[in-house]
């Protein structure tokens, strides 16, 4: 029997229209699960905690899922406990999901809470699972600036998916409509802490401009119009070309941009 991978999906939000859609990273979690299944490394199941009636669930299902389980929850309910129960009941050995939800609090806590409660390690921002051999996975993490890091970890684990992971496959209408949306009734625990919080529509936050703190008018004027200068840089003029190039090369090594 293949070990199980569980992809947890949430309802996303289209950045332009604000409409519901597959969440970018959660879709990638399903995609990764499907790939693992196709490679016969794991068996995929997919679950959502929330409203079973959302048409977005059909979009996830349309990726080729015969069944999608919904842990029925209202908005503002704490989904953690039902999820833990579900993961344990499923005997999953890998849980995949997005880094942050596109709706609601977007705190990114859920995967960490899950991992902690399950006692599993957590891998953040996974780009790719290269292999799983004898229960040990070789995982590529996405780092800033397009960089990648290879990490090896033994199953079971929780992983969050970076946008660098393979994009979710197309959703197909027919299978999506026909998929079995299995509703699992769960006990609901209201999130009383968050109920205290105030939610308001956000205004865009422009990036900070240069801050001119100069006191005098002349200095403010200069600060505004000055050209960027570094000052105090090393200048090699009379050395040989070899020495000059070596200096640059050493600099690059020191800054660790050459490895």
């Amino acid at each position: 029997m293949l070990p199980k991978v569980l992809a947890l999906v949430s309802i996303g939000r289209h950045p332009q229209s604000g409409r519901e859609r597959r969440a970018e990273q959660d879709g990638r979690a399903v995609e990764m699960g499907l790939c693992l299944q196709e490679r016969q490394l794991m068996h995929l199941s997919v679950a959502h905690a929330g409203n079973a009636d959302s048409s977005v669930l059909r979009q996830y299902a349309g990726m080729g899922l015969s069944k999608l389980s919904v842990l029925a929850q209202q908005a503002n309910e704490d989904v953690l406990s039902p999820l833990i129960d579900y993961v344990e009941a499923q005997q999953a050995s890998m849980v995949l999901m997005g880094v942050r939800s596109e709706m609601g609090q977007s705190s990114g806590m859920l995967p960490y809470l899950l991992a902690e409660r399950l006692g599993w390690p957590l891998l953040p921002r996974v780009a790719e699972i290269q292999s799983i051999e004898e229960g040990v996975a070789q995982v590529l993490l996405a780092l800033p600036r397009g960089q990648r890091r290879l990490v090896s970890v033994a199953l079971p684990f929780v992983a969050t998916l970076d946008n660098a992971a393979k994009a979710p496959r197309q959703t197909a209408f027919g299978p999506g409509q026909r998929a079995d949306i299995e509703v699992i009734n769960t006990t609901s625990i209201a999130d009383e802490v968050a109920a205290q919080w105030q939610f308001t529509p956000a205004k865009p936050r422009p990036k900070r401009m240069k801050v001119v703190k100069a006191k005098t008018a002349a200095d403010r004027f200069k600060a505004a119009t000055a050209k960027p200068v570094g000052g105090g840089g090393k200048v090699l003029k009379n050395e040989t070309v070899e020495e000059k190039a070596q200096a640059i090369f050493d600099f690059l090594l020191e800054e660790k941009v050459i490895r």
Binding site: M209, K210, V211, V212, F221, A224, T225, K227, P228
Partner: peptide
């Protein structure tokens, strides 16, 4: 300054307008 010529950086006074 008012009509910055080619010696000025791009949008040198944008921070004032943004303020």
């Amino acid at each position: 300054n008012v009509i910055p010529n080619m010696s000025y950086p791009p949008e040198p006074f944008l921070h004032l307008a943004a303020g």
